[in-house]
Design a protein around this nucleic acid. Structure first.
Length: 541
RNA sequence: GGGGCUGUAGCUCAGAGGUAGAGCAUCUGCCUUUUAAGCAGAGGGUCGAUGGUUCGAGCCCAUCCAGCCUCACCA
């Protein structure tokens, strides 16, 4: 155990100063971390409710000190609570020498509770004239609070804002304190999920939970994270999709089930991929993909209204219109429309010729489906800005989808594209167990040839299908990407509170400014939050 | 994994091979309606890490670490 003295020697001046204040508070019999506070008002409500002609109203607020302007025997500060900021005014003559001296021990970042009356200052800002305050939590680390002002138009202007992306993602609490718009994004994310859940619940679909740890993974083409269960001494995989378990529940007699949960895919990371991400999957018995398009239109319209209070979402200066119906166009038509090339009925050689004409590179190992997919994703996808259902996919790419009722070589599948991104994926689910077995055997063959993204053969799933699954429509929606879309976020990391990051560098091999916050060996035992956690999840590679 | 850019004080950033800088934040003094408060003064740095070149490296070279962008892979 290191002594307080040793600890303090390792701290910079700013932190040492605050530790000293902490001890000074104790010396004055002030608890720097008391147990609660009776909060009756919020910053934004207090500001909104103020009328100059009204009698001075008494309020009790709590929040973090974000600015302090001391002027000798009186001071101004701004408190920030979960609703916003409000200025408070403290005067020695009102508070008394002792309390005012106590206020001098407070810093930006400290959390206090205040009571007082609301008034308007000479310069016009509605503020709280403090009659009493309590320290609720002492802040021992300096907060990188930037200067800001409100311009003539009432806009917030921030100087030298805290913008270091690495620190913002690693220290999300700081980011949330200092960049209020970040909080807005996550409030919208919450509203989005709530609206979606409420939409699904109102239709009577049942929310369920299926295993995250799976002995076999399936339902999508992706590499998994691998872990190990000690007691059973077996390999388990973190799920890449919920699909196969949800279908078992349809077999079991649920007519509509959905799950909103994390999936995990052991693949590259970029601004639209995080190794763990949130997926909503919905399965509805006796329905097909055409029916599901109607539902998706209505659901996204409803969800966007909840988030943006409008029929549109603004992304990059473009208004995306969620008013149903969305455009529906078969994949081959979309390719024809965009490139002038018709691919219907072409064999692999014909498709390769088309790809060549369009300047699309193909791999000799690819089959017809993959070539079509490549043409589509390189020549068409980006042009799909307004919500568009692309329907009827090549069968090779969709081992869990039902054959198209009227077009050979295709399946009944759609993907919804918005702003050039895939947002939803849906099939009429394959419920013929014999067909399903053959397709999974094909996948197993691909796997045996080294395609580590091909699906595993899940005998239990086939067996379950053999009991009989009703016709079913299945849907998957990436919640992170939908959130990006509805909030205009440019990176998936901006809609995930704690995005996956490389670990901070180990003690002794510190990088960048992060080292200021990293533990050194001598303090590890006292800094549990800094100890690298053991992980059960191992990267395959 | 490839390519490009970046890493300097708590934050935002300057820095032409020759003694590490600014603004804000912090500290001291003054200041009882301020608001990017003000005035006067002060402290604060392993220049991401390690090696090399050089009389001398924040700067040049190499390797490594981390982040961002981009491509590839991938929905």
């Amino acid at each position: 155990m290191s002594t307080p003295t040793n600890e303090m020697e390792e701290l910079n001046d700013l932190m040492r100063r605050r530790r000293e204040e902490y001890h000074e508070l104790l010396a004055r019999n002030v608890n720097p971390y008391p147990y609660g506070y009776e909060v009756t008002d919020t910053a934004s409500e207090t500001l909104a409710a103020f009328r100059d002609e009204d009698a001075q109203r008494t309020v009790a607020l709590a929040g973090r000190i974000m600015t302090i302007r001391r002027m000798g025997k009186a001071s101004f500060a701004h408190l920030q609570d979960h609703t916003g900021r409000i200025q408070v005014y403290l005067k020695r003559d009102d508070l008394g020498d002792e309390a005012y001296a106590l206020f001098k021990l407070l810093d930006i970042g400290d959390i206090i509770g205040v009571t007082g009356f609301v008034f308007r200052t000479k310069t016009g800002e509605v503020s709280v004239h403090v009659q009493g305050f309590v320290l609720l939590a002492k802040s021992l680390r300096p907060l990188p609070v930037p200067k800001e002002k409100t311009d003539e138009q009432g806009n917030r202007v921030v100087f030298d804002q805290f913008t270091d992306k690495e620190l913002r993602y690693r220290k999300r609490a700081l980011d949330l304190i200092l960049n209020p718009e970040v909080k807005d994004v996550f409030l919208k994310r919450s509203q989005l999920i709530r609206a979606m859940r409420s939409f699904l619940d109102s239709r009577g679909y049942i929310e369920v939970e299926t295993p995250v740890l799976q002995p076999l993974y399936g339902g999508a083409a992706a590499r998994p994270f691998v872990t190990h269960h000690n007691a059973l001494d077996m390999t388990l995989y973190l799920r890449i999709a919920d699909e196969l378990y949800l279908k078992r529940l349809i077999v079991g007699g649920f007519d509509g089930v959905y799950e909103i949960s994390k999936d995990f895919r052991n693949e590259g990371m970029d601004r639209s991929h995080n190794p763990e991400f949130t997926m909503m999957e919905l399965y509805v018995a006796y329905k097909d993909y055409a029916w599901m398009m109607d539902l998706v239109e209505e659901m996204l319209f409803t969800v966007n209204r909840a988030v943006n209070n409008a029929n549109t979402a603004m992304v990059g200066g473009v208004a995306l219109d969620f008013t149903p119906p969305f455009r529906r166009i078969p994949m081959s038509e979309a390719i024809a429309e965009r490139t002038g090339e018709r691919i219907d009925g072409l064999d692999e050689a014909g498709l390769r010729a088309v790809a060549r004409r369009l300047g699309v590179d193909t791999d000799p190992a690819w089959g017809a489906g993959k070539i079509i997919d490549e043409i589509f994703s390189t020549r068409v996808e980006a042009s799909l800005v307004q919500p568009t259902f692309i329907t009827d996919y090549p069968i090779e790419l969709s081992p869990l989808a039902k054959k198209h009722r009227s077009a050979a070589g295709l399946v009944e599948r759609f993907e919804l594209y918005i702003n050039g991104q895939e947002i939803a994926n849906c099939f009429s689910e394959l419920n013929d167990p014999i067909d399903q077995r053959e397709r999974l055997v094909d996948q197993a063959r691909l796997r045996a040839r080294g395609d580590d993204e091909a699906m595993s053969f899940d005998e239990d799933f086939i067996e379950t299908l053999e009991y009989g699954m009703p016709p079913t429509a299945g849907l998957g929606i990436g919640i992170d990407r939908l959130t990006m879309l509805l909030t205009g976020a440019e990176s998936i990391r901006d809609v995930i509170l704690f995005p996956t990051m490389r670990p901070e560098t180990a003690p002794g091999r510190e990088g960048k400014k992060v080292h200021e916050h990293a533990p050194d060996a001598a303090r590890l035992d006292e800094s549990p939050e800094s100890v690298v956690p053991p992980t059960n999840v191992q990267d395959q590679e």
